[in-house]
Design a protein around this nucleic acid. Structure first.
Lengths: 123, 123
DNA sequence: GTATTATATCGTCGTTCGACGATAGACGAT
DNA sequence: ATCGTCTATCGTCGAACGACGATATAATAC
């Protein structure tokens, strides 16, 4: 059938869809070199004052602030206010689901043990 | 091997910037629920015929094809042609750098041992 | 040959991203 | 109170994304 059937049974369900959206949201927050740079910087130094990040990244302050907002909104970093500065640090737990998925791929895990329906065998 | 000099000169950059762009590119390819779904599907079944993916995702064939193109272009999946079908499978190695970064965050690694310049101590 | 199936590509359209400057808000120091 | 510093937000604009239908391509089936 060429028309998409509306009555598709959600075999993977709402939970799986929500999980996919959550994983995609984390990946999206990491999907920019400046934000990867910020994460790597926070990994190195554990925590950083915002203005140091601005210096390191080399973009306009408003742009860096926006990247930090995106990372905060995704829950990947937290900002502790120390007026007039803000001290940023990582929230590792937020990265765990994506890290687990990638690790599963690297380890070749078959999560569902549903290996019966392999379309074509790996070479 | 000393990749990171203490200088904050802009020439920190070529290798590190390329790495950040590469990591960001992988994250970007994963930054959509449908593409996460495809990766999870390929993880479960090792490999899949494209039309099965179209059925599972529930978007238009052209849209799914576009998502597969993005994943292929990022090097995350490979497509083996078996006319008229294409058999897709994962390329785990492409995910390794991002997986390593996330693991470092989860493990609390300080990659550069440059812990001297902590702005404010973790709580 | 024609028909069918599976996939890729093209064109379009609305939405979102990413950059910047300008501006506002909140403190500490003077 | 005024200045300087640091951060967040707003408005704008071009570029890229994501969806779709229509179409093109290629192999198989009849």
């Amino acid at each position: 059938m060429t028309t998409t059937a509306v009555t598709r049974s959600p075999s993977r369900g709402v939970a799986a869809a929500a999980s996919e959206e959550s994983l995609a949201a984390v990946a999206k927050a990491l999907a920019h070199p400046a934000r990867i740079h910020i994460v790597a910087m926070l990994l190195e130094k554990q925590s950083c004052i915002g203005c140091d990040i601005v210096d390191e990244i080399g973009l306009a302050q408003s742009t860096v602030s926006e990247h930090l907002r995106i990372l905060k909104e995704a829950g990947i970093v937290t900002g502790q206010i120390e007026r007039p500065r803000v001290c940023y640090s990582l929230n590792p737990e937020r990265l765990r689901p994506l890290a687990d998925l990638l690790k599963s791929v690297l380890d070749g895990d078959r999560r569902g043990e549903l290996t019966g329906s392999i379309c074509c065998p790996p070479e």
